[in-house]
Amino acid sequence: MASSSLSNASLAQIEALLVPNAQSSGQSSEFIPQLYYALHQVKKDPNSSVNSLETATSSIRHRLKQCKSHIAESEECRALLSKTPEEWEAALRQRQKDLAVKQQVFARLERQIRDLGDH
């Protein structure tokens, strides 16, 4: 899941913010366990732990805000995120097809030029 091979710097930073990692827990702990535990504390002690949900969600909100700013700053990042991996697969296939067609056109032109030169 967590591949460190992202070549786009902004995407790599977003991944670091969002994808939890068992080794480096702390900075990037998972959202859901944080949420259910905060809810549990609200349930257990409705009066004194009013802030716990606020605290838990504020750290999540902070991380999401950082992600948003990374996306906002990088045009390339927005372009990459505009398609799902499946859509990108299809887009790449289409682009390869287009290139193949262009290559054929060039090959034909090359042949025609050679033929003209022969005459």
Partner: peptide, 18 residues
Amino acid sequence: QMICLLQEYKPGLVTLEN
């Protein structure tokens, strides 16, 4: 019920904290 749903959906990675 909300807590249960969240826990079933994603109890989290295997860490002492979780």
